[in-house]
């Protein structure tokens, strides 16, 4: 079907990822209690973001439970092809959420694991599958939960600032929660969101991909950091700690001053909340 390489038009490179097709139904009432699933990357590298998520939820009048038995959603093994190992880790998480409270996850990709991939892991265990489906139905990504279930109203107390939002591929393509991040930022009166070039493109993290294919992943994160830095933003926020680990590591290596922070920390700080979490 080819025709020769014609002149290359200026692309719509900054075209924003559109909302995901198929709307999710949200409960009419805000719950009194929720579980927080912190995720393993956040646990070790961005614990303050987890605390800030807890504070945001508490400020909405919700009691937060953090099951101490939680570890990892199982995604690293799952995407590496170690399905049996992933299933056992997933099984251990399933046992933690015995009440029917919503499970809030400050990460699009781990929330996506609960909502979409656990069913694949347990497809031939009917009893577990029912449990998995119930969990999927009450799992929310943090930004999604704050906006759609808490119907949060943010009161910006900060000074004018330009912010670039990086959304993870799972947030955009599995959870459709990139739009929630944008909506939350747009509630902040003094915040101007700036869109970076190739906003809808992967940052190159991809779990073990970044160490298995260092050249390709490195090229991707260099492009992503260049786009973020080139967007004229004063701050970079994201609701996924895997991406943040990757992007911040690259910023630091390039000796750039810009750093990404978790959306929860940014929102809490802008609205006068105080984070007593430890800075990493």
């Amino acid at each position: 079907m080819s025709s020769p390489h014609s002149s290359v038009a200026t692309p719509q490179a900054t075209r924003l990822a559109p909302p995901l097709a198929g709307a999710r139904n949200y409960p009419a009432q805000k719950p009194a209690e929720v579980y927080l699933f912190g995720t393993c990357v956040l646990d070790l590298f961005f614990p303050e973001a987890g605390m800030d998520a807890i504070r945001l939820l508490e400020r909405e009048g919700i009691r937060v439970h953090f099951p101490q038995g939680q570890s990892c959603c199982g995604q690293p093994a799952y995407t590496s092809g170690y399905t049996d190992e992933a299933r056992e880790v997933a099984r251990a998480q399933l046992a933690l959420f015995s009440h029917d409270w919503p499970v809030v996850v400050p990460s699009g990709s781990c929330a996506g694991m609960f909502r979409h991939h656990y069913a694949e892991l347990f497809h031939d265990e009917p009893a577990t599958l029912r449990q998995v489906e119930a969990l999927a139905a009450r799992t929310y990504e943090l930004a999604e939960f704050l906006l759609e279930v808490c119907r949060i109203q943010l009161d910006d107390r900060g000074s004018p600032i330009k912010v670039a939002l990086h959304t993870s591929c799972s947030a955009r393509r599995e959870m459709g929660t990139h739009v929630h991040g944008r909506s939350l930022l747009s509630q902040l009166g003094q915040v101007e969101r700036v869109d970076h070039d190739h906003e809808s493109e992967c940052c190159g993290f991809g779990g073990t991909f970044c160490v298995r294919m260092p050249d390709i992943s490195g090229a991707m994160v260099r492009d992503k950091t260049a786009a973020l830095a080139g967007a004229g933003a004063d701050a970079v926020v994201s609701a996924d700690c895997g991406c943040l680990l990757n992007i911040n590591g690259a910023f630091e290596k390039q000796q750039q001053s810009l750093r990404g922070e978790h959306l929860a920390s940014f929102l809490l700080r802008r609205t006068g909340g105080k984070s007593d979490g430890v800075q990493s």
């Binding site: 614990p47 994160v221 590591g249 430890v278 990493s280």
Partner: peptide, 15 residues
């Protein structure tokens, strides 16, 4: 392509 990740002083579990 990146600086080494630095674990936080305390985990979220602890906090």
């Amino acid at each position: 392509h990146r600086s080494a990740p630095k674990p936080a002083a305390r985990t979220l579990h602890e906090l």
